[in-house]
Write a protein that binds this DNA or RNA. Sequence first.
DNA 1: GGGAATCATGTAACTTTTTACATGACAGTT
DNA 2: AACTGTCATGTAAAAAGTTACATGATTCCC
Lengths: 203, 203
Amino acid sequence: MSLDYAILGWLSTGPGSGYDLVRQMDVGLSWFWGASHAQIYPRLKVLEERGLITSEPVTVGTKLEKRVYSITEAGRAAVSAWASEPPTYPPNRDSERLRLIFGDHGDTKAMRRHFETHLDRFEKRKANLQEFLDSVTSRKHQRIEQRIADAPTEALKEIPLAVRTMAYAGDLRRAELEIDWARECLAWLDDFERRHPEESRAG
Amino acid sequence: MSLDYAILGWLSTGPGSGYDLVRQMDVGLSWFWGASHAQIYPRLKVLEERGLITSEPVTVGTKLEKRVYSITEAGRAAVSAWASEPPTYPPNRDSERLRLIFGDHGDTKAMRRHFETHLDRFEKRKANLQEFLDSVTSRKHQRIEQRIADAPTEALKEIPLAVRTMAYAGDLRRAELEIDWARECLAWLDDFERRHPEESRAG
DNA sequence: GGGAATCATGTAACTTTTTACATGACAGTT
DNA sequence: AACTGTCATGTAAAAAGTTACATGATTCCC
């Protein structure tokens, strides 16, 4: 179960609460594996039962308690074992392209809206990723620095930053490809509507 | 639920059995929405209960019965309504990149295996997509022809083929991007191992 | 006629994910 | 003192998806 390893992997860079993990989803982790608090809190309990993480309560103010989780040696071993497992590929699930293929092909206005939404979404995504990639390459992330510090040899210190750069730069290019694709689809639609002005309405 | 619309959308191009739909998953539909027979058969019953599809038993040979489903007018209306709904975006779930980010960064051999698997997977995917795209553009698909024939005006006959070409060509470029990405990651790894031959082993 | 592959359809148990419900503390501000 | 936003953690019910179990017919080849 990948969620387990998203949690364990994140905790392998330092302790944190369930809420920290929920926050982390908004600022980077969800590029790879998104999950809501309703999944995270129960899962943390399971991982603790299995001895892969431990927790201690921390009192904030006078009454508010949070549980701060840390990875155990067993947890680190589990991550290490998972890391060399062969990848498994889930089925493709793309509701947007499903709509494009099976949608109402008389309704070019709806098609246009969908392409524009696609374009907008990936332009925003590109901007966010660019910002995030910049912050990674200028080494502003405490948890990545921790990873670098934890590397057992000088040479291996290079890797944590490199894999993140590769991963996020890859995502950035994926976003750029989607932007190009949406623009080309819109250009085709412009051309279609120019050639067939009578069809340029909801069907 | 997108599976419903994958089923309805497919049935909107002509009647077919559950098994036909299962087969279809291997030859095109699963590029967008993969599903196994264990999901499809129960779902067909639900859609029939809701009046979106109807079925009739067809006897093959002397005893074997199959149920052939057809979309109803209510079903077509449901597809049409769904087609103009705004898209919803599911959370990202990419276990491969999760492994890259949180995997064992001392084990460069495992990293290499993962990049090679990625490369291999998308090279195969590219080849399959290329073949499929060729068969689409040379109009060898009966169900696409049906879509074209069903278009209410001459101008709209252009759309079914165009959207499929856009969709599969987009997928092809996505596959090509993944191939480039994997090659670059491997090049980085080659360079790393050249610079640090002592780390070129499982850690 | 036997065997293998494929056609054809289903169910049961389980896991994973989503949506909604639910609660309460703390911090700032008007 | 009331209000708003954020911090913080949970549960319950439902939906969606996977894996395994299960059965029988037909077709084709040997």
